[in-house]
Amino acid sequence: MNPVMAWHEEHAYFARLLQVLQEEVDTLYTGQTPNYELLLDIVSYLREYSDQVHHPREDEAFKRLARRSPELRPILVRLHQEHRVIAQSGDRLRELVEEAVSDAVLPRADIEAAASTYIVYYRNHIATEEKEVLPVAARSLTEDDWLAAKEAAPAKADPLVGGDAGDRFRHLRRRIAGETPPHHRAAPATSA
């Protein structure tokens, strides 16, 4: 597959995951309890695949693109920095969701704020790459550049797209495919 198309398809998939994450977090506003296991799967997937495979490959492509298209350097530097912000905010969100899964008592507003930060950063990040970077990368990067970008991260199958993750992400795959409806329950009266 064309590397630009592959990059675009991964972005579309990540955007769908962020939409499901947003839908689950929105239940907090209505007094329901989101499916915390699903939230944890989404954040874990994005941390384990996107941050460990997709973003390192992008960083290598950004480095090469900055040499070929110096006018993009400020945007590319910011996007590289955003990879770290996304990773840190993802870690914080995962910590909070893990606490919720283990029935810890914590303010719902903490989860809402952490999720909102993560979602907003990630969506804006993807939009900038799609609008500002991918068109130039398609014109400027060579086969050698794309090969170096591919080799910048370990060869790891995407666990949601034919990867070997066993049953871990089965529910998440079904939810993204629209096969299963959201699962919410009324929040306990003692929720913060």
Rank of each mutant, 00 (worst) to 15 (best):
V133D: 01
A153P: 12
F169Y: 12
Q88L: 13
V97Q: 11
G162T: 13
A12S: 09
V133A: 09
Q22H: 09
R92H: 05
H80R: 14
H55R: 11
P107R: 09
V136Q: 00
K63V: 01
A149V: 15
E95Q: 09
T33F: 08
A115F: 08
Q52M: 10
T142S: 05
I126R: 11
N2G: 07
L28Q: 05
A61D: 00
E143M: 12
Y49S: 08
A157M: 05
A109Q: 04
Q52I: 09
R139I: 05
A113F: 05
E82T: 09
P107C: 09
P154F: 08
V43W: 00
I111C: 10
I119Y: 07
L76N: 06
R47K: 03
V101P: 06
H8S: 08
E82N: 06
A87Y: 07
R64L: 04
N2C: 11
A104E: 06
E71L: 07
S191K: 13
L141R: 11
L46E: 06
N35E: 12
K156I: 15
E179C: 07
F169W: 02
K63P: 00
L93R: 06
M5L: 12
R67Q: 00
R78M: 14
R94T: 09
G162M: 11
V85D: 14
E60Y: 03
Q32R: 13
V105D: 09
Y49E: 04
T142M: 01
T117S: 10
K131S: 08
T128R: 11
M5I: 14
H11T: 13
F62G: 00
A187Y: 01
L96D: 00
M5Q: 13
N2H: 07
D41H: 08
Y29A: 15
P182D: 03
D41E: 12
E48Q: 11
A104F: 07
Q88P: 02
A138I: 14
L72V: 04
N2W: 02
Y121W: 02
E129K: 13
Y29P: 04
L172S: 05
L147R: 14
L72H: 07
E132M: 15
V136G: 01
N35S: 06
G162Q: 06
P56S: 11
D26A: 14
P74N: 08
T128Q: 06
H184W: 13
